[in-house]
């Protein structure tokens, strides 16, 4: 039943976003807004936003989870505390600074935005993967080894399933943060809903501003609900 209420929440947020968009397009303040906010343009911006978040989050999962696994294997285990400390420091670096630094080194463009978002979302996933795997009761893995399971099987059938909820929680944090941070992509030529905010500010039209602010909030809330239910699903 939890999934039903999550589904309803996602639908609710989606509908709010949809109605807000329709309302602005149908009842623009003036001609400037009418030209700026059309269904086509909104669709493009939303797709860009999804693309930025999706690609960077996917890259983050694909890098952070294997890295987290590697850092809990016997060979690299001793590095884990140092990496974790570094990750914690990294997480205190503001998102704008991360975006700015990648601009400094890569110039503007969507690649820059993706790299920045990737680095930023990597951190919560990595730290949760590390902690999740470290928290698996050693007596359980010992039992698994003792029963004659191969190392690979212990990892995939015991450790990862037990750490899955924690890893998923990291992904959830990463995705919701990334949706918000992706607004900054607009400043570095990455596009996305942030464009609406910049445009809204430039031409001082509150409708555009509100839409630009509301859409990422709704997206973040939707993502939060979806990943929350995924997190519950994989919890043992």
């Amino acid at each position: 039943m939890a999934s039903l209420s999550s589904l309803l929440k996602v639908l609710l947020y989606g509908l709010i976003g949809l109605f807000l968009s329709i309302w602005v397009v149908q009842n623009p303040q003036d001609g400037l807004v009418a030209r700026l906010v059309t269904y086509d343009k909104l669709a493009v911006l939303l797709l860009q936003h999804f693309y930025l978040v999706g690609v960077s989050a996917l890259l983050a999962v694909l890098t952070a989870v294997p890295l987290g696994i590697a850092l809990t294997r016997p060979g690299l285990k001793s590095w884990a505390p140092r990496v974790l400390a570094l990750v914690n420091i990294g997480q205190t670096v503001p998102s704008l600074a991360v975006v700015a630094l990648s601009v400094g080194f890569l110039g503007v463009g969507s690649l820059t935005a993706i790299v920045a978002l990737w680095i930023y979302s990597l951190l919560p996933i990595l730290s949760n993967t590390l902690i999740g795997l470290q928290e698996v009761d050693s007596s359980i893995t010992e039992a698994a080894h003792g029963m004659g399971m191969k190392g690979r099987h212990v990892l995939f059938r015991v450790e990862l399933p037990m750490a899955a909820a924690m890893i998923m929680a990291g992904i959830r944090t990463a995705v919701t943060i990334t949706i918000g941070s992706a607004i900054l992509a607009a400043f570095v030529g990455g596009g996305g809903v942030g464009n609406l905010i910049i445009a809204g500010n430039n031409i001082s039209r509150w409708q555009v501003l509100v839409l630009g602010a509301a859409l990422p909030v709704l997206m973040a809330l939707m993502a939060d609900v979806i990943f929350e239910s995924l997190e519950k699903k994989v919890r043992v």
Binding site: T92, P94, L96, A100, V103, G104, V108, F187, V188
Partner: peptide, 29 residues
Amino acid sequence: YIFQGISRSNDQMVIVGAVIISLISILTD
């Protein structure tokens, strides 16, 4: 500094702004 640096394509401004702000965050933490 960061926003101006981005709009003027001045990488040095952007990097200096970002580095200082990161340092302040890390040190405060």
